[in-house]
């Protein structure tokens, strides 16, 4: 795991590679980095000098994975790293609980309400939820807790649409999963 620069004068070891990868932002939530979203799982340097980056999709159908790969490879090349391989990790499945405090802060600052605690994962049958969704979210614009859900789905797979009943502004909410 020691650093092998492969002739690139700016390249460094695994921690430098992590720092470069960790600055890459999400294509659809450009205020948040892949690291703060919990999408970036690991960065290491193999014996032959290849930088191996592991990412996990938020949702199975997330269409942004290809862009994330391209952005990661591009950022690492620009930082002087040579061969870069981006691998998908499917297990364990991504959870919104992996979004860091910094990620939650930048989401809210960008007008998107961060998720609450993810539902407890169980090995057995997943109980039916017939009542209104129990999600709550404070308005990222005025801070009011008096908000309602407009739609359980939003512009990307990871978001729902809500409205603030105090300032009347609609806003997006990263739904708990």
């Amino acid at each position: 795991m020691t650093q092998t620069a492969q002739g690139h004068e700016h390249a460094g070891g695994p921690s430098e590679a992590w720092e470069v990868a960790a600055r890459v932002t999400d294509p659809e939530l450009p205020m948040v980095t892949l690291a703060d979203l919990g999408v970036l799982r690991a960065v290491r340097i193999d014996a032959d000098g290849t930088v191996v980056v592991e990412i996990t999709p938020t949702y199975t159908g997330c269409p942004a994975m290809g862009v994330m790969r391209a952005d990661l490879v591009h950022a690492l090349h620009r930082a002087g790293f040579g061969d870069v391989e981006v691998r998908t990790v499917l297990s364990p499945a991504w959870s919104t609980d992996w979004i860091s405090d910094e990620g939650r802060r930048t989401l809210a600052a960008g007008g998107i309400a961060p998720p609450g605690k993810a539902p407890v994962r169980t090995d057995g049958p997943i109980p039916l939820q017939l009542g209104p969704t129990r999600r709550t979210a404070s308005c990222p614009l005025c801070g009011s807790a008096d908000t309602e859900e407009l739609s359980e789905f939003g512009a990307t797979a990871c978001k729902a649409l809500r409205r603030c009943l105090s300032c009347r502004e609609p806003f997006e909410h990263v739904k708990e999963i």
Binding site: P57, G61, F153, A157
Partner: peptide, 20 residues
């Protein structure tokens, strides 16, 4: 409109599962 977004999102999840 909201239901159109919902149906498209459900389809996208399923398409992702199909792809894998």
């Amino acid at each position: 409109l909201e239901e159109e977004v919902a149906v498209a999102n459900v389809a996208l999840d399923l398409l992702g599962q199909a792809r894998l």
